[in-house]
Design a protein around this nucleic acid. Sequence first.
DNA 1: GATGAATGAGCTTTCATTCAT
DNA 2: CATGAATGAAAGCTCATTCAT
Lengths: 211, 211, 211, 211
Amino acid sequence: MPEKRAKKSAKRPVRRALQSRSRATVDAIVKATARILAERGWTALNTNAIAARAGVSIGSVYEYFPNKQSILNVIIDRHLAAGEAKLAEATSILSSGKDADDIVEAVVSGFIQLHQDDPRLHRALSTEVPISPAQRRRIEALRSKIVIAVTSALSEYVDGAELKATLLVETADALAHRWFVDKVGLPVSASTMAGETSTMLKSYVSAGRSD
Amino acid sequence: MPEKRAKKSAKRPVRRALQSRSRATVDAIVKATARILAERGWTALNTNAIAARAGVSIGSVYEYFPNKQSILNVIIDRHLAAGEAKLAEATSILSSGKDADDIVEAVVSGFIQLHQDDPRLHRALSTEVPISPAQRRRIEALRSKIVIAVTSALSEYVDGAELKATLLVETADALAHRWFVDKVGLPVSASTMAGETSTMLKSYVSAGRSD
Amino acid sequence: MPEKRAKKSAKRPVRRALQSRSRATVDAIVKATARILAERGWTALNTNAIAARAGVSIGSVYEYFPNKQSILNVIIDRHLAAGEAKLAEATSILSSGKDADDIVEAVVSGFIQLHQDDPRLHRALSTEVPISPAQRRRIEALRSKIVIAVTSALSEYVDGAELKATLLVETADALAHRWFVDKVGLPVSASTMAGETSTMLKSYVSAGRSD
Amino acid sequence: MPEKRAKKSAKRPVRRALQSRSRATVDAIVKATARILAERGWTALNTNAIAARAGVSIGSVYEYFPNKQSILNVIIDRHLAAGEAKLAEATSILSSGKDADDIVEAVVSGFIQLHQDDPRLHRALSTEVPISPAQRRRIEALRSKIVIAVTSALSEYVDGAELKATLLVETADALAHRWFVDKVGLPVSASTMAGETSTMLKSYVSAGRSD
DNA sequence: GATGAATGAGCTTTCATTCAT
DNA sequence: CATGAATGAAAGCTCATTCAT
């Protein structure tokens, strides 16, 4: 069995090669899942379809994932990671920001960017896929982090920063979802709605400030 | 033919008794469905569970509903009907309202009342249950009606009433959902959040008005 | 309860009236069954459909018939009775017949008349409805009777009457079914096929006769 | 990459082994279906019984067949294929035949062979199983082909070949069914009946020929 | 007797998961 | 490790039959 010896004698490279192959397989599975979810929805998502779409066997899917939910968890995790990345990115803007309006602008545009990236997948994740309590906690934790960051950024400009940050974040998130994911019944374009959203929130955040 | 007369005179009560039995069965099925949905979620909702929870046989479920989805449709319909009733009720307030602030108050409190009624069921319906395109259209139609009513009410007080009505309705709906259905991560009580929501929206709606 | 006394005091007329009502109900059920069978086939035949079509309640169906099969049995029985009636009628022709050709003619036209009466029902009965072994025996018994009658009629004209009668009866039955029930792929009209059938069978029956 | 080569060289046998396993499963399912149909009839045929009898799980049945009807289609197809094979085989006899009697003999014995092969299954297929319109067309198409072949074979010996071929084929088919499938009420052995059938048909076909 | 609501065994089918190859 | 055939619990639904009214 030459393969076996090869593995033993040259563990590192082969392992690394294998790992990259593994990673590729995992990635193919996750991407296939996301594609099916975005294109055909939760009801059409089954493990055989995932395997077929990923170009691997169903056995391989279970080689890398203990069950179907765990694939979804990866997708949700990636979404949350994207959210965290966006948060980190925004934090620098927030901290280096000039005034409260810039902060509102950063929050609103941050959520819009988040929802504009693959809105069909986003919709599926937020309205079809059953979320486990653990995932829900992770989502809320991220939300909380964002609120804290925004609170801290706002606190030097306004009073009652936490309350305002909470409203700002929730409203920006919900309305970005409506304008760019649901996209229905809008009297004007989504970006006009986004502008109006900013206007409303800037006015709200700045209301009654000390200066 | 005395039997015939006897039968005729007896038919009504029997018929009525039967009808009330039927209605009770239908009601038990719908209620059981709503209960399971609220308590154990869409994933746990199956026709056998519905029958068991309703205390009827699976056959009775299919005596009154052609399929599983149709039971859900009734529940969704009832929810929409509740929304429409609330709208009708609010409309009188809107039309007899004194100023723009009253309108905002009516919209915000209307959505809060809507979301406070069985929030777990509300959550299940809005984030788990697969909604058919037809149902989605009905939901959007109701939203649209509400926006129109609010637009009309606002138009005598402010400029750009439609845009403002849209933002007002969407924000009120989304935030009421967050404060009273999701109920997570709030720095203060839900009703304080609601008060803040009203404040923000009143200020937004009244901003830049002519007088 | 005046009805009850009425029943007791005037048993006969009421009983007869009831019996005729019963007979009407039974008849409606049987006719509805036959209609559904002829029009929509065995797969569409269920007891609720029968009750609805007969204009009676499902309970009444089970008042008069112990189960679904027993309704079918009545239909099959009626068909067999029609066959027996046709046989009795034909027997007089057979016995008063002038020659072997008349006998063949009588047999062929007898089967044609049998198959022409409601061919869709006939088709359903012969190719869809599951026949119980008991029914099959009854059918074979009737066949047997016919063969015996034909044998007896033929025996004064030909040798080997039983063999010839068997072939005659089976061929006439099978071909009448093909020409008038299946009605497919015929190069000429069904009645021309029937004429040819007679010709063939007359020639066969008369072949090698003593005269 | 020795593994790859090893895999490649090993793939074929494995693939073949898998294929033969699949084929064995498919075959077991089809055979089980045919057995149940022959022994216990259409009423007793359900997918669970098929799986149990085939010694496979119900899941495997649906791995290879999209639904119950498709299993039956395979059986019907096989029957039709057997009929077509018999036709092809008979055609050579027909074309190389010496006279009209040989043709009749070939047709009669062809149908007998067809019906003698698993007569119980044959009976179930022809009198119980619901045949789709498409299958019915296929059956009639085969019948039509046979009639055309026989017509062509007969046309050099007799006048009105098509009419005679139609009667010949229909009679041979129907009577072979009666003698070898239904097997009831025969005064003499099935093969004697078959001989008589041939005699009748030979005489009919040759009647009124020119020579 | 008549009614029709209720019953539940039993059917077809799906799909997450396992395991022999 | 990869494969994909096989598994079987579980779901949706039908319909002959029963039984309270």
